[in-house]
Amino acid sequence: MKISVQSDDFDISEEIKQLTDGRTDIGAVASFVGLVRDIHGVKKINKLTLEHFPAMAKKELNKIANQAMDRWQVEDLTIIHRYGEMLPGDQIVLVITTSHHREAAFTAAQFIMDWLKTDAPFWKKEETEDGTHWVAAKTDDDEKKERWK
């Protein structure tokens, strides 16, 4: 299991390789990459800054990852969450899950993303043509998390 909170970008193919190299029992790899969009509603976004709580971020991602490993037959997983300044098109977050069969890999990846949205201590600040503002939490993100209970 690899959990990383970093400012550097990541390479998805390199990360998948690390999970699958030397293994012939893995039948499924599911991955999710979150990117910076250049539009929020009608506003054009020029830059995104991700603030995080260093002492808690990795720990909370670990908790979410362990829950996923407990609930589904996931062989291994990687979560990378970036912080700092990013531009539209940049990669923010990566989740990769590996399993013998696809269902566990798909489901665990979705579970991790839904929980990460509300439970990992990161905050987005957008710089638009009208100035900068903190992104408001979405209530439907809470609902997406609740469905896993």
């Binding site: 991700l50 808690m56 993303m113 903190w134």
Partner: peptide, 10 residues
């Protein structure tokens, strides 16, 4: 003690 708004990562 730490105070912060609801999280908006991902």
């Amino acid at each position: 003690l730490a105070f912060f708004p609801p999280m908006t990562g991902g």
